[in-house]
């Protein structure tokens, strides 16, 4: 079933009490922060189902906020995150909802600021997480790989241009996921890589025609 390593079984070192509801929440926050990757005025967290029902007792709300502020899963400040200067500096709200079409541990991050962005993710068990939707685009981010995320105007040749630049440095592509939104105009590409993308490669990809959003999301450390 799973290909856990010995390290996966005897870690992570984390703030309790739950790998899915606490550590998973922190990791979702960290990943969402890297996807948004710019200053925001306000963020709304929408917690669904089990995340909504048992989230307070598990510190899920604290974990999501801590991750968004860049704190790791073992950070001692998670417990009192609402009182930290970092948290007092930003505007945030929590909503607790029920929607059985969503995963039992689902969350939406709704950012407003330089950019409006809605990011949906799930905590799928044992601290493992996934971001499944960004605005109207389906995607698949799990924080295990360095990932390039692109939203762009769909036209022929974009995939080969992008993968061509990636391959210049012998960086291996672990997976590639493409998707087009409903009006058929805009598309998204999620590329997971085994290696690192250089600043120059990233710049050249950003400079390709009709790129709206370019994010290089480093894999999560824990």
């Amino acid at each position: 079933m799973s290909n856990s390593t010995v390290i996966d079984i005897i870690s992570p070192i984390m703030a309790g009490p739950s790998s899915s509801h606490t550590a998973g929440a922190v990791r979702l926050g960290l990943l969402a922060k890297n996807v948004y990757n710019t200053n925001f005025d306000k963020v709304v967290f929408k917690l669904y189902n089990s995340y909504a029902q048992t989230g307070k007792g598990h510190g899920t709300d604290k974990g999501l906020l801590a991750g968004l502020l860049g704190f790791g899963v073992a950070d001692k400040r998670i417990k009192n995150i609402f009182d930290t200067p970092e948290a007092k500096n930003i505007k945030y709200e929590f909503e607790f909802l029920e929607d059985f079409n969503r995963h039992p541990n689902a969350v939406d991050f709704i950012f407003d600021g330089e950019l409006h962005m809605e990011i949906s993710g799930n905590s799928v068990g044992a601290g493992e997480i996934e971001i499944v939707k960004i605005n109207d685009f389906q995607t698949k981010l799990d924080g295990k790989y360095n990932t390039l995320l692109l939203i762009y105007e769909d036209e022929p040749g974009v995939i080969s241009n992008v993968t061509g630049i990636i391959q210049e440095n012998q960086v291996n592509i672990a997976s590639l996921y493409c998707n087009r939104n409903s009006n058929g105009k805009d598309a998204t590409m999620t590329i997971c890589m085994d290696g690192e993308l250089s600043k120059d490669q990233l710049k050249r990809i950003s400079n390709l025609n009709d790129m709206y959003i370019v994010r290089y999301i480093k894999k999560l450390e824990n």
Binding site: S11, T22, I78
Partner: peptide
């Protein structure tokens, strides 16, 4: 109490 522990294999 949200202290730091090691999930081994899980937090529970």
């Amino acid at each position: 109490r949200m202290g730091t522990i090691v999930a081994c294999p899980t937090a529970g």
